[in-house]
């Protein structure tokens, strides 16, 4: 029996699950408050641009987005299987492809800020 290569993705899934568990609810609160106009001063172009303009801010943003993407992608692969879809290889290409695309776009946009 050959050893599985799933650890590559599971490692990202586990790290991402931990990071999203800690930060995502608060992040969503921030965007929800912005959506409800509770935070007119802070969720602004100037403030966020300044945050994303320095390398530490870029690193934090990249880390959170990268791990959230790969966490969600791997769990989605399992979930699709749980809902009865047995085309696991195709599903893996699609979900990991989406995560890869998101990762690439994040790098491009961060470099433009």
């Amino acid at each position: 029996m050959a050893k599985s290569n799933k650890p590559i993705f599971w490692g990202l899934f586990a790290a991402g699950g931990t990071v999203t568990a800690f930060v995502t609810p608060a992040l969503v609160l921030v965007t929800l408050f912005a959506a409800m106009r509770f935070s007119p001063d802070l969720f602004t172009y100037q403030y966020l641009h300044a945050f994303a303009a320095n390398w530490l801010g870029k690193l934090v943003i990249f880390g959170i987005i990268l791990l959230s993407l790969w966490h969600a992608a791997h769990r989605l692969r399992v979930t699709v299987h749980d809902f009865g879809v047995r085309a696991d290889t195709l599903v893996a290409y699609v979900v990991y492809g989406l995560a890869g695309l998101g990762t690439l776009l994040t790098i491009i946009y961060l470099l433009r800020i």
């Binding site: 999203t20 995502t24 992040l27 969503v28 965007t31 959170i64 987005i65 959230s68 993407l69 966490h71 969600a72 992608a73 769990r75 989605l76 979930t79 989406l98 998101g102 776009l105 994040t106 946009y109």
Partner: peptide, 12 residues
């Protein structure tokens, strides 16, 4: 994970 995936794309 579907919600986290979608939200991450909102951040992107």
């Amino acid at each position: 994970c579907i919600f986290i995936f979608a939200y991450t794309f909102l951040l992107i």
